[in-house]
Design a protein around this nucleic acid. Structure first.
Lengths: 340, 340
DNA sequence: TTGAAAGCGATACCAG
DNA sequence: CTGGTATCGCTTTCAA
């Protein structure tokens, strides 16, 4: 009944007690009705009164209170890759999330840029997630995994270059991609192979192991590998092309299709004949790679779909006793077109 | 001292009470020490004992309990766009999240595919977020905004084609892009303009208003607009190109640069001269668009950076009384290269 | 069929 | 300087 001139009405959210009061029942009854608790039978008139009261007040249950009481959550924490252009296809994350939500999990995507492994694990553990799925750069240590399990996580899944002890590890070894590209070029008779190293830090992290893979493949064949740092811009590509002949290379693996397209165009502008003088191969099998002439050869990367991963997480949650396994996940195979 | 053969040790997470017991102090003291509460002075030996106990047990505070007690969270819910290739540049989301985390918010990315506006608002409200930033397709109604504010959200920000009453609305009118592309083509003397409509549902949502914008621009100039449905694959592009001459168009706005590249190549393969016979323009100013010959003309889209948006959210949270404003966000300008 | 009350974990007030 | 204790919102057992 105060006469204040109505401030921006910040009365706080209605609670189940408010609903109970308005409906003239107890809080317990409100809970039974709104959760359709099957073990308890509530008369129809009461149900209606409660529902109407909740509706009228705009009642929304308080997730924190509920999970505190329940002692568990349906939260899946997903530390996401910091940068786009990572190893996962565009739709992956979206599929993954959508499927988890269909399985009634709450997906909390957690950007963990700037936290080291164990700090990050602590931060995730505060949310008492039922599962943690590490897709990003920040991979937990085995210490972190233990911490998470102790704080109630029934599954810890990692997807990255190496597995982690105690976690379900899906290993994506980027070296295979470099090895596949190099092997393809070797088979085509090339013996002096440049490997583009992106300067973008996100891509660089994947590029290193790809270079290593190429080196390993070349070593067996007595071929030469030359690392070629390059930024994803037209000028650096042109600069690299300008000194191309002095490098005396007969092939280049350009990290991925976007870099390959950029470099191939720069080479052509410089008068270098692709593939006669220099073969070019990318990775990722982008549709756009088929549009240049010659059509770009590439490495196709086959991996798990987002939906499959969601299923795997759900199974791990339901069967938390199962031993944490490590699985090789990624397959790479060359797609020969015209540029190599 | 039990002799059990160590089962998968699922003792539940240690609480502050466990820490207190081990350190020989009260729970209150534990809380003071671990939060560095400045108003209370605790002796150094006690602090050390508490810290050691917490460390030993692997204690991690329980976020739900804390925010329940505190009555507020630092959670920002971000319903994300369901599909990639949306209006926001690749780095946007990552920048946005990173900056919010720097400002000490917990970012909960919430995929809301398959929920309608008001159900989604309810789901978000359960988390009692301090702010909600809707980037995706699911935009709240003004009803939803009220519900969120009632449940404690100090800011609701929407970024989409239309504003919502009661929310801070950043309006990105896709019609401008289509209008800009069409105006450019009209200025170049074209009078029969095809507009590509992607069949992918994510892109289609943006394509409709872009078509409308093109129509509006053409209407003033007595030019003709022809919608051209096309999927993002090589065959459909080739099929469209095959019947191109029967369409009697002298220009095409191809939704975005990727579609434009695909269609332009198909037209060239069909012997259609670009730009003489048909001018082609895309949108988004992809680097790859400069690699084809002729170089692709495009529409450059200038919008807010992720960091800027995070700053705006933070300000809105700190000054919840400020009136919810609506701001036009997007600028479009033509970039003339060689294909038009 | 409904209500009273305990308790989930953390915090902040008020005594001691 | 430190400890007891009420409290946040909700669920669930036990009694009525």
């Amino acid at each position: 009944m105060s006469q204040t001139p109505e401030p921006p009405v910040e009365r706080s959210a209605p609670t189940s007690a408010d609903v109970a009061r308005l409906a003239g029942v107890s809080r317990a009854t409100v809970s039974y009705v709104l959760n359709n608790t099957p073990a308890v039978r509530i008369s129809e008139p009461t149900r209606l009164r409660v529902r109407a009261a909740a509706e009228e007040l705009g009642y929304v249950p308080h997730a924190a209170a509920r999970s505190l009481r329940a002692g568990r959550t349906r939260t899946v924490v997903v530390p996401t890759p910091g940068h786009p252009g990572g190893p996962l296809p565009g739709r992956f994350l979206d599929d993954f999330e959508t499927e988890l939500r269909r399985l009634e999990y709450t997906v909390v995507q957690y950007g963990s840029t700037g936290l080291d492994g164990d700090e990050a694990a602590r931060a995730w553990a505060e949310l008492r997630p039922v599962a943690v799925v590490c897709l990003g750069e920040t991979q937990p240590t085995r210490h972190g995994v233990r911490l998470l399990r102790r704080s109630g996580a029934r599954a810890v899944v990692t997807l990255g270059p190496r597995g982690t002890e105690g976690a379900h590890s899906l290993v994506m070894d980027q070296r295979r991609i470099g090895a596949c590209a190099a092997a393809h070029l070797l088979r085509r008779g090339r013996r002096a192979i440049g490997v583009v190293l992106p300067e973008d830090p996100g891509a660089a992290r994947l590029a290193r192991p790809r270079l290593e893979g190429a080196r390993a493949a070349a070593a067996g064949a007595g071929a030469r590998i030359a690392p070629l740092p390059m930024a994803y811009e037209e000028e650096p590509a042109a600069a690299l092309a300008a000194r191309w002949r002095s490098l005396e290379l007969d092939a280049v693996y350009a990290y991925d299709d976007a870099y390959a397209m950029l470099l191939m165009r720069a080479l052509q502008d410089e008068g270098v004949d692709v593939p006669r003088e220099t073969a070019v191969v990318g990775a990722g099998d982008l549709l756009l790679g088929r549009l240049l002439r010659p059509r770009l050869s590439t490495v196709r990367i086959d991996t798990m779909s987002g939906g499959d991963l969601a299923g795997l997480v759900d199974r791990a949650v339901r069967e938390p006793g199962a031993p944490a396994r490590e699985r090789e996940l990624m397959a790479a195979r060359p797609v020969h077109r015209e540029s190599s």
